[in-house]
Design a protein around this nucleic acid. Structure first.
Lengths: 240, 240
DNA sequence: TCACCAAAACTTGTATACAAAGATCGATTC
DNA sequence: GAATCGATCTTTGTATACAAGTTTTGGTGA
């Protein structure tokens, strides 16, 4: 496990912040979202307790919530781990997200005020710039900001919460199934076009745009059955 | 709080069943589903612990999970209560369920084998009979069995789980906003027609049928803003 | 009679102790 | 050298004690 996120937390604690289970949930969600906690990462209760400066009771509550949200998986008497969904579940997550994010943008189209459009446009701009200077970490962050902004401003808040969860789960499976040689999963212009459709109030077009965007994203992943993914010849050919 | 469900649990415990947090979650979910735990019901940790024969630790874990699923609501330092969603949230829940259950039946259409159709047909039949003999409790149970069967057999399991949660939340808001004078929220033939469309593989028609069914169900509720719901004149006019 | 306030009872928040299950490492045997 | 068995260490499961917050209750004064 990398130490970077642990150090950040320790800094927070020294600053005198009150840590509760909600705080821990948010920190872990954020770390997973930013792909700093890769799928499969062990999350022992005592370790987390020491990092956040609380006892296992508080950590346990946080882990229970994260498990409910499918961010981690827990099995009896075993350490919690960051979820590592199967190929099958990955496809399901994308299909679910297409359905729900499609509906959210359809509801949202034509109902964004000038200020909200401005904010979204700034995210789109920032994402493009990060991409052009090759800063993948920043690019992902801005891209996530766009989708989370849509989720947070869904007229149907219930669907918005569901979408937030699916965005997080999508991050996990991207980290898990990203093609080895793929530098970036940036889809040129998709976000800019979506924003334009939202501004013009073209709900159904926006729905289709988002769904196509997510399908394209899914196709960038390596979702072949596992046997065919590991090319023994290539591995040992190079090594020997 | 009524004692009926508590007695059932005590019987279970005497039978020697090992109780864990999952068990408690299921029992409470079931009780809420059957409208035996009305919205707003207090769920103190110690009381639940005594009923299920476990300590607060286990109860707490169960309550955390139930809160994540929006079955109960928890506020700091206050007793957990069965959720009582606002009118606004109720509309959102119905809209979300229309979207997701619509997709599930569209996916399911034409993919049910003969045995599965037979099982669904038996539920539909049982619901009709319960309605005819005026057994509302049994009717609700069979109706829920139909919808849960669809959720459990969703080709997309992720959407299926989401649908299960929404069915539960729908039960809660029906208990909360059921019109006073309304004997039953039974919609004649809806389920039978849906089954027929599923058998014939007409996915889009099945989607529309389910969505119309849920809209009709929502319209049977009293979702007026709260001020206009309480008719003071009627209350005191009758009393005096 | 009502509003107000303090004390008691109730309830949750957190830490911790101990039990039980799982994982790990090393020695032993084939 | 590989597999197996057991001791040890790690980690979670559960109960419980105490602290802190909330609600209820009962009494007091206007």
């Amino acid at each position: 496990m990398s130490n970077t996120w642990q150090d950040e937390v320790l800094a927070d604690v020294k600053a005198g912040a009150r840590i509760n289970d909600r705080h821990i949930v948010d920190r872990i969600r954020q770390a997973v979202l930013m792909q700093r906690l890769p799928p499969g990462t062990r999350l022992p209760e005592v370790t987390l307790g020491e990092i956040f400066g609380v006892s296992r009771s508080v950590v346990r509550k946080a882990l229970t919530r994260l498990a409910s949200d499918h961010v981690i998986t827990q099995q009896p008497n075993q350490v919690a781990r960051v979820s590592a969904p199967s190929v099958e579940e990955t496809r399901e997550i994308f299909a679910a997200r297409r359905l729900i994010e499609g509906e959210v943008v359809a509801l949202l189209a034509g109902h964004l005020d000038r200020e909200q459009c401005r904010i979204l446009a700034s995210y789109v701009e920032a994402e493009q710039q990060a991409h052009q200077r090759g800063d993948e970490g920043q690019r992902i962050e801005h891209s996530l900001a766009i989708h989370h902004y849509l989720a947070d401003h869904s007229p149907n808040r219930t669907l918005g919460v569901m979408l937030s969860d699916l965005i997080l789960r999508t991050s996990i499976v991207i980290a898990l199934y990203k093609r080895a040689g793929m530098a970036s999963c940036y889809l040129e212009n998709d976000h800019a076009e979506l924003l334009s459709l939202l501004e013009r109030g073209e709900g159904e077009a926006a729905r289709r745009r988002v769904q196509a965007h997510l399908t394209a994203l899914e196709e960038l992943l390596d979702l072949r059955p596992q046997d065919t993914r590991i090319d023994l010849a290539a591995i040992f050919g190079e090594a020997g």
